[in-house]
Amino acid sequence: MIQLLQNLGRTTRAGFTKLGRGTFFLLHALGGLGSILPRPRLILNQLYAVGVLSFLIITISGLFVGMVLGLQGYYILSDFGAEETLGLMVAASLVRELGPVVTALLFAGRAGSALTAEIGLMKATEQLSGMEMMAVDPIKRIISPRFLAGLLSMPLLAALFSMVGILGGHMVGVGMLGVDEGSYWSQMQAGIDFQDDIVNGVIKSIVFGFVTTWIALFEGYDTIPTSEGVSRATTRTVVNSAFSILGLDFILTALMFGD
């Protein structure tokens, strides 16, 4: 029993220590943003690695999610005779919740774990150390560009997800199930408010991008420099990102969509 409490205490303390290290790491990386802005090449490379390579999985997932929403939504709404509001239902679900959240989760799984593995491997093969000895700050050179790329990519990917999803819902609802084309869009436009829904959704995706990229980069930077350590770090990235995204989603939703 005492052993259990001791372990719990130790783990909690270690957790706080890690959070502290992570915060210093974040501040250092944010400070480095200024020095990489005059070097767009670095940022572009990372935008490619993080954004472009996630493009496919995000759009395909968005399409399927939108199509399922169209299908399920139709069945549920037809019980109330409200099929014409399908467009509004699909759009609201995507823009407010599924777009930012699912994109963030997919991002953490694909781009996040790849970032962790890359940084972890650089640590394990002493590349980060080597850079330090060459008087190049590895955080400014390696971490900051990746951080910026993640932050910029997320809202773009979430918007793409929502857009493709809405089109997918259209394909199923209007194309296959007979919902009126005009109603699909007009109900949507009447019901989705730019500030309350679109802007809030974008804010959510920026927050998720910030947190997910931070976790991914820090887990890689902090990992034990062995191959086992790196593989465990990538798992931690995905798990911790998932917890953070879902937890933050609740908080943000309560703040934004309450009255």
Partner: peptide
């Protein structure tokens, strides 16, 4: 490709703003 990606993302945002919401 990066340029296309960013452009696509912006198209997505514009789509949401104009076609989906009551912004117009």
């Amino acid at each position: 490709l990066v340029g296309l990606f960013v452009a696509a993302g912006i198209v997505g945002l514009l789509f949401l703003a104009l076609q989906v919401s009551n912004l117009s």
